[in-house]
């Protein structure tokens, strides 16, 4: 159910919508069947598409975006935001369209309003006239026929609704009633690390403590991660700056910090950065303050370190 799979179908469905709507207007009242079918058909895929597209946007964008934007300056962020908004807008519109044709909503079309009160009666009629009108209807909706059957037609038939259908319905209504939920989420930013060179073989990371404070993490933990990832060592000097052995540029440190943020700060469930890291029985747990979920995070491991010339020299000196 990825976004890519949905896209073409969505377009198809939309194309069909127009056709069907026209038909709706033209046709007389009696053929409810088709209207209902068309309706459920238009409502369902679109709604699910809208919901999914929205979700996809929200899910997919912040991951990379958060990481990418975390340190970016405002200008960049604004640009990106625009992009995400553009992506989201069509989804929202579709959601709205889907709801328009939804039976239970206050549609603008008169026909629907007319039809709404006698739903039960109409359904009874449906069952009777199903066989007769089915053929004619399927001609009109050839391609979407399969989709309609599979997706969401509990209104037009006497079978029970499935969990997924109800779920997408709930999300659709939720989104429609609370537009603020759809909007893109608050971004968490960290000040860019200030990295300077100290001599030729050392780098100084000046605002470690500040960044750690902003992330609500122990500097020790952050530094341990930094050293493990960079494969070096270092120390904290008198004025709370981190001196790292080896030459590193700001963007390199930034990258590592981004990864740290993703691993140990953001909540995987709600993407919030409002989390606490606790240690229990030698395991690190990340607890989210905003959604309450807890997950374990992997301990920091240095892994294999290749023997460098320095180590070899030291070994030789010892021997």
């Amino acid at each position: 159910m990825s976004l890519h799979d949905e896209k073409p179908e969505q377009v198809e469905a939309e194309n069909f919508d127009f056709g069907l709507k026209k038909k709706k207007k033209k046709k007389a009242v009696p053929d409810f069947e088709e209207v209902a079918a068309a309706e459920t058909e238009t409502a369902a895929p679109e709604a699910s598409n809208g919901a999914e597209a929205g979700e996809g946007d929200e899910d997919a964008v912040p991951e990379g975006d958060d990481a990418g934007n975390m340190f970016a300056d405002l200008k960049k962020k604004k640009k990106k935001k625009k992009v995400t908004l553009e992506g989201e807008e069509p989804a929202q519109e579709e959601g709205a369209e889907g709801t328009k044709s939804e039976a239970f909503d206050f549609g603008e079309k008169k026909k629907k309003k007319k039809r709404r009160p006698d739903l039960a009666e109409f359904e009874a009629q449906l069952r009777e006239g199903q066989t007769g009108e089915d053929g004619a209807e399927e001609e009109g909706t050839e391609t979407s026929g399969a989709k309609k059957e599979g997706d969401d037609t509990w209104q037009g038939s006497n079978r029970d609704y499935t969990y997924n259908e109800l779920l997408s319905r709930v999300f659709k209504i939720l989104r429609q009633n609370n537009p603020e939920l759809v909007g893109d989420k608050k971004r968490y930013t960290i000040a860019p690390p200030q990295v300077m060179k100290e001599g030729t073989k050392k780098s100084v990371f000046a605002n470690v403590v500040d960044i750690c404070k902003r992330m609500h993490r122990q500097p020790d933990h952050v530094i341990q991660y930094l050293f493990a990832e960079l494969g070096t060592t270092g120390s904290i000097d008198g004025s709370q700056r981190l001196v790292i052995k080896g030459r590193f540029q700001q963007k390199q440190i930034e990258n590592v910090l981004k990864h740290y943020f993703m691993e140990y700060v953001t909540c995987k469930t709600c993407k919030s950065a409002d989390t606490i890291l606790t240690k229990e029985n030698r395991l690190f747990f990340l607890q989210c303050e905003s959604c309450g979920s807890t997950r374990t995070v992997s301990a920091i491991k240095t892994g294999f370190m290749a023997q460098t010339r320095d180590a070899r020299k030291a070994a030789r000196a010892n021997a």
Binding site: G231, T232, R247, G303, F304, M305, A306, T308
Partner: peptide, 17 residues
């Protein structure tokens, strides 16, 4: 795990573990 390690200058080592 694919790691990178700095050597002297701009030289690096990549380890695949």
């Amino acid at each position: 795990h694919i790691r990178v390690q700095q050597r002297n200058g701009r030289k690096t080592l990549t380890t695949v573990q």
